[in-house]
Design a protein around this nucleic acid. Structure first.
Lengths: 265, 265
DNA sequence: ACCTAAAATTGACGCTTCGTCACTGACGGA
DNA sequence: TCCGTCAGTGACGAAGCGTCAATTTTAGGT
């Protein structure tokens, strides 16, 4: 009359195990290479058990997505806690986003997939809600910095815009830049010569200047500030990147000229 | 020794027929609802014939994507030919992008899907090349306007940036804004109260101001200019939208306040 | 120690969908 | 009339998803 107790803890850890296995499959064989049979084969549980955690393959992918956004939230927190001007902290948020995309490219691509209804409409309601919660948390961190900037007088809300809208324009720019440049799969002529970290901060600084977020950009000064944030707030992430042969140096002159110069005249 | 002649023309028109059928399935039952058997059932050709046009389902989707980008290229041309200041023509490009996303939401979502390797890595080489060609054409149209702006003296290339990079930052902002707001599927709290057309031009004007593209923004004046471009260069598209109950009015005050105000303080 | 019943787990199976390939038949020349 | 070629066909094999009847495990109750 008193059957097995559902041990919440080991249940959660098993879910992590499943997610880790799924991610490793994706890393080895691409998202298309992930299928439930393969996952089951790689893990000491049966299909039924896997399906007791995730209502569908898409639910699993969304879950992986959420996990990634939680990592990103941690990075955002580091940026928000950085002691510097509000503009520097704003740059820090974008740096966090950039580091996330470079450290976990597969996870970033999953977010893009999650925008297509195909994926999202087949995830469980519960999971969708979790997704929105992390998203709100991420967004909230940005709004907070905008708020601080207003309080500090570094920045005045543009006409007819709310804090939320300002945060959103930053999000749009960050997301758009990374989405278009992430994934080497698509090395179209248009993008030849473009370099993710440089375009990211070119774009963001133009935007922040446009909204009058002080101190305004003198590319060189911002490059130096950025480099310091990277070293001080994100030393771990920077060295993880370095281990993979990716060395970010924001003080270096922007683009290795060539290749692109002639294309568009 | 002289078997059936491959009539290039009817071959091309059959391809259009297939694409139209595929799109109508997507419109009725979503991307997930599109499958090759259903397509074959809806069309007076057999599976084998369909597969002689498209090497895989993904190849078909990419093809649909390309077709959409060609439509977009047409809209870009209208914007580029508009007789007004270079900044107005720049706004026109973004307006074209917006109209495209509103008139053909399914096609826009396909572009997003196309960013995920899952889709792209399974399309034929030939199709990939076609994709890059349209993309380059689209991008070229933007670069051209940037060039005109420099020539006209409306705008000075920011330090260390090329025309290509400036065009790219516009693309990032436009794409990011639409991608995050398109698709009602994802109506997270963060986005409540945000309105695609207003955010689009808030964001773009901030960016253009940031790069010093004259005349600088006085939101009201730009709103009026935008409204005129919409009416003069895109009257067809505007009325198509109106038919579907979507009335764009850029001179209206930005956001129906409420809902969002309290959420982030 | 043994019984019992609910919960947890299993994996074979049914179903959908993709893409192929052996076949058909239409057509023009010999 | 016969032949060779090739567009077109659709039945079929392979692969993957998700289910559910059967089995095992667990922890009180006796």
């Amino acid at each position: 009359m008193c059957p097995r107790i559902v041990d919440k803890e080991s249940l959660a850890s098993r879910e992590l195990e499943l997610l880790a296995a799924a991610l490793s499959i994706i890393e080895n064989r691409g998202v298309a290479g992930l299928n439930m049979d393969r996952l089951v084969a790689q893990v000491p549980y049966s299909k039924g058990t896997v399906y007791s955690h995730f209502s569908s393959k898409e639910d699993l992918l969304t879950s992986l997505c959420i996990q990634g956004m939680e990592i990103l939230a941690g990075l955002f927190r580091k940026a928000a806690n950085y002691s510097g001007s509000t503009r520097e902290r704003g740059l820090g948020i974008h740096l966090a986003y950039l580091l996330y995309a470079l450290l976990y490219p597969n996870r970033f691509l999953l977010v893009i997939s999650a925008m297509s209804p195909t994926l999202f409409e087949r995830t469980s309601e519960q999971r969708k809600q979790a997704f929105q919660e992390v998203e709100t948390a991420l967004f909230g961190a940005v709004v907070e910095i905008v708020d601080d900037a207003i309080t500090a007088g570094d920045f005045k809300l543009p006409d007819h815009m709310t804090k939320q809208q300002v945060a959103f324009s930053n999000w749009s720019m960050g997301f758009g830049t990374i989405a278009l440049l992430a994934g080497e799969f698509n090395d179209c002529e248009c993008r030849r010569g473009l370099n993710l970290e440089h375009e990211m901060f070119n774009n963001v600084n133009l935007l922040l200047d446009g909204m009058g977020w002080k101190p305004l950009s003198n590319s060189q000064s911002h490059a130096v500030a950025l480099q310091r944030i990277a070293e001080e707030a994100f030393s771990d992430e920077m060295s993880q990147l370095a281990e993979r042969g990716i060395r970010l140096d924001f003080t270096r002159p922007p683009v290795p000229v060539g290749a692109t110069g002639d294309l568009f005249g």
